[in-house]
Nucleic acid binder design. Structure first.
Lengths: 237, 237
DNA sequence: TCAACATGATAGTAAACCTATTATAAATGT
DNA sequence: ACATTTATAATAGGTTTACTATCATGTTGA
């Protein structure tokens, strides 16, 4: 089990390329983020509008537009916050471990249990953020504005999580041919298997019961080990 | 290389749960599908509207609404068409092969080259459909209406492709613990690696040059073999 | 030939998305 | 202390989207 995080008052900094005005800096901004998270998670980004959010925080559309260009940028902010927060937690919990394989295993465990064992020190709840990420995370990439938005800052926090995992995989097996692709695949599968087992069970072997998370963790471990195992040929000789 | 499909006049049937009125049955309907495909592929589903489509086919919004409830259903229709078409092609090309491993390899090859080596017998171009699927395929699942829409018919064609691959994996290794999850993962990776290598290259090991497709194919083969290899423990003894 | 039905034209509503302008409060300079 | 600048919020409005309704026209096929 991952240790419970108890560090108080960590401020997660989201890259300035993700907003017009820093929402964490003002009272309205913080309230905006909190309510946006709840609303988007409840209805999905498609149904979500600035008008509804304005009503929820007892403010106006114009105010929200001063913080974010549009709702997709706001979604990206929340997801960036999620990845940044996860990245911090991973670094924190993995740092002290000595063996690379231990680090890798804990990395995957944190991905699967990202919403649990988390002291809600911060004003954005990781449980809700994780649930939001399940359905909305991919939507920020798969847009026709990817190339404009991908100025290496807009998606920075997600990329950092990927590159952390990539580098561990490379350490674990320096001759691995696909460290980046495998890293992203693992991160993506940690979400998708949870979503599929809940909503499209015919597309996943993961059950919906109590063992759900443990099964996903086993699956990720299996994927990791089978794809990053060192030179099988040698051993087989 | 997969054989070039030359069978003329194949009619791909899309499940009736995907439309209000069969668009393939009428002239307007077919024109609607063709133009919708081009428009959605060009601008993305977010920018796409029935008004624009109506203008493109020189008709009215009201007419289009008689075929599809909304633009998401239309997108799902096109993607269902894509999966159905792919499914047919896979069955056709794999049928004659004897060894399961051969079937698997060809399955993956067809996934990677889905837009190529395809005689455009049909009125919907597989090249454009494949490109559309790269960015839009996941969007039909990750919605808050999944559970309503997932009446086992709406996503039928995608599920069929998955289950075909699942059953091959099971034949190849009956003791495989995650056949469904691995099948979906492979299908998904065949798209994602292409998209990432084009738009977010820092998240993929696949290059953008001439070898792009071959690299993705190698990657998929690698994933398949490493995750479905039979009882390593026995061999290692 | 008549009934049934698909289409096209027209219109209209409600909401979403975004901008421009005006009001208000806080900060700053003399 | 008071005027001037600055930052932010409130108000309002325009455009587009998503969808529904109605009705005349044309086509099909029983």
């Amino acid at each position: 089990m991952p240790t419970l995080l108890t560090i108080p008052q960590i401020r997660i900094e989201v890259d300035s390329g993700c907003y017009l005005r820093d929402p964490q800096a003002t009272e309205v901004g913080r309230k905006l983020l909190q309510q946006a998270l709840l609303l988007i998670d409840k209805t999905g980004i498609e149904e979500f509008t600035f008008a509804k959010l304005a009503k929820a925080i007892d403010s106006t559309e114009a105010t929200i537009y001063r913080y974010f260009e549009n709702k997709h940028c706001l979604l990206n902010y929340l997801l960036s916050w999620y990845w940044a927060s996860l990245n911090f937690r991973i670094a924190f919990e993995i740092n002290s471990l000595s063996r690379v394989s231990e680090k890798l295993e804990n990395f995957l465990r944190i991905l699967v249990y990202a919403d649990l064992n988390y002291a809600s020190t911060s004003f954005l709840d990781m449980g809700v953020l994780h649930h939001l990420a399940l359905t909305e995370a991919d939507k920020v990439f798969f847009t026709h504005r990817v190339d404009e938005e991908n100025q290496d800052r807009y998606f920075r926090h997600y990329k950092m999580v990927c590159s952390q995992l990539t580098s561990l995989i490379e350490q674990h097996n320096p001759s691995c041919q696909w460290p980046k692709s495998i890293a992203c695949m693992l991160i993506e599968q940690s979400h998708r298997q949870l979503f599929f087992s809940d909503h499209l069970p015919s597309l996943s072997d993961v059950s919906q019961g109590k063992k759900q998370r443990e099964e996903i963790y086993s699956y990720l471990l299996f994927l990791l080990h089978s794809t990053t195992e060192k030179s099988k040929t040698k051993r087989q000789r």
